[in-house]
Design a protein around this nucleic acid. Sequence first.
DNA 1: GAACTTGTAACTATTATTATTACATGATGG
DNA 2: CCATCATGTAATAATAATAGTTACAAGTTC
Lengths: 117, 117
Amino acid sequence: MTSEFMAGSIGVNPVIVRNVIGLLRKAKLLQTQQGVPGARLAQSMEDVTLLDVYQAVRDDGKLFSIHDRPNPECSVGRNIQSTLETFFGEAQKAMEDRLSRTTLRQVIELNQLERDG
Amino acid sequence: MTSEFMAGSIGVNPVIVRNVIGLLRKAKLLQTQQGVPGARLAQSMEDVTLLDVYQAVRDDGKLFSIHDRPNPECSVGRNIQSTLETFFGEAQKAMEDRLSRTTLRQVIELNQLERDG
DNA sequence: GAACTTGTAACTATTATTATTACATGATGG
DNA sequence: CCATCATGTAATAATAATAGTTACAAGTTC
């Protein structure tokens, strides 16, 4: 299945597909060979979690972005960033922990279950 | 403290501040009066959680957005949305649960601790 | 080597965000 | 009472972020 075919089915540009595949390859989730159509899993479906995919695909690591030029003259602005990062980090960790508990296998199995009845 | 003053300190436009305050007011987290400078908490700091603030400020409710025009001819695309929504929903819930366990009071206390200690 | 593929860089278009302007509505103090 | 200063909000403009496109080098296959 070529990137062109996938892109046609999904309804996006082939380059988008190739770029995403490239990210997944860098994360060692997929393996491809230049000039050879298609891509295949580089790991078993049991070993790949949604967290792996999530981390492979996003560029920045932060779920919440924080105002980047607080006023150092302001007693709140001076250090609110580190305070918020503490709590936001906890929230992001909770989300990632949950993602890490779902494997590709589980996704596919639920998908087939929902399809077949 | 006027929206103009806050905006100047933060380094953004006053209208941005007023709009955010407007969202927080709609969520009954702040109370303001037209023509009267400033805004004040509409609830005690112990009762307001980061989840309340998060939900007040974001417009859409979804943490993860899913491709909106999958190919119905494709055995995967046909129902992958509902499958992913299941797992993404779980992840979002985990994140929101964590946010809901932190109150404004806790944020302020940690902020002061980091500043003074 | 002709006809395919992937991989990427450079560029363009589109969308989303942020900022600005303008003004209606309300408060306040002399 | 009215000049002055606030908020609230809509309409518009400017900017930043994202998505899409084009182009082509590099690799494969038959």
